[in-house]
Design a protein around this nucleic acid. Structure first.
Lengths: 185, 185
DNA sequence: ACGGTTCCGGAAGCACGTTCCGCTTCCGCG
DNA sequence: CGCGGAAGCGGAACGTGCTTCCGGAACCGT
């Protein structure tokens, strides 16, 4: 059932290089940047991109998952190196930063491309546990109220940060600040 | 200062045919349908499309405005032919129907294309007065509460109908039904 | 070192938006 | 009525971007 055949070293190297290159290119030129640009940045041909990510959207999804992982993984690290309330603060700031790079991705999510179908679930699967443990620690330390479930907080912040129409620049930071203050006991 | 030169008859005919063709094509194939398809449906060449609508997005915006007009214009007609509360009901159903064809348009609105910049204002300029007069009539007849401004109702319904993630099929109709029940006295 | 397998590169194919320009159609005027 | 020029039309051609294809290079177990 498992995959007995090993992955060739150069293939793995290229795969990683592509993910990194795509992250950089998408960050500077937006998710609509041409595939050729990503290939060039990674120092490979476009054929190689399509070998590893059959569709453009697969590449976008992979970058997204990678960034979700990076952000979620920051939670235990912060929890281990800061007191509960500060860890929570810092992680939420990190989360807002994560969301800030997602302009245009909300649109992609609703584009109907099947490559994006699993992303919302992944988002929840990684972020909910991460935030839950931070919240529980802060609650246990008596530093924040205990009646705000992680999901609600995640969605509230996400909606604040991926806003609709005429939106002020750092509306996101201000509103999130309010939320966090509201958490404090 | 005005335009003394008349519009040629065939030009106007083509312009109208294009709007109608685009409405049909966008409705069946989505707003991402190729311009060539619209041209074919209207029985003209692509050059003619671009003569009347310099950018693809101008065509999309024109269709949108046209549909907004059709929906908003239905309000006074319904008001004249039904008792206030029923007119309100029917118009909201009509509004939900209007929104139902707008999948993918929310994404377009945030695409940054200048052709769409004026659409939110147009939306408000046409729908707010339409709904306001329906509401006022129903309030005057003592059939609905008077503390719900038209804007709030419009936005609430719109948000219910252009939903985010895993959405049930007729979530829209159910939630709107709830709202309307809430209005009743 | 060898051979099969896996992977790579980038040119070619395709789909779409948009432009361009020679030809057609309209219509005001004589 | 019919003429002439302006207004409008069609669709081939171009630019850009995604995706496919395949000859050959790189890898790795023996």
């Amino acid at each position: 059932m498992s995959t007995p055949r090993r992955v060739r070293a150069d293939a793995r190297r290229n795969s990683d290089a592509l993910l990194e290159a795509a992250t950089e290119v998408f960050a500077t030129a937006g998710v609509d940047a041409p595939v050729r640009d990503v290939a060039a940045r990674a120092g490979v041909g476009v054929g190689t991109v399509y070998r590893h990510y059959p569709k453009r959207s697969d590449l976008v999804a992979a970058v997204f998952r990678h960034q979700v992982d990076a952000c979620a993984d920051a939670a235990p690290v912060l929890a281990a190196s800061h007191p509960p309330a500060e860890a929570l603060d810092r992680w939420l700031a990190r989360f807002v930063e994560f969301l800030a790079t997602k302009r245009g991705l909300a649109a992609a999510l609703h584009s109907g491309d099947p490559a994006f179908d699993a992303l919302p679930a992944y988002f929840d699967a990684r972020f909910r546990p991460a935030l839950t443990s931070l919240l529980e620690a802060a609650v246990a330390a008596g530093e924040v109220r205990d009646d705000v479930p992680a999901v609600d907080l995640l969605h509230a912040v996400a909606h604040l940060c991926l806003p609709a129409e005429g939106v002020l620049p750092d509306h996101a930071r201000r509103m999130t600040g309010l939320l966090v203050d509201g958490l404090r006991l």
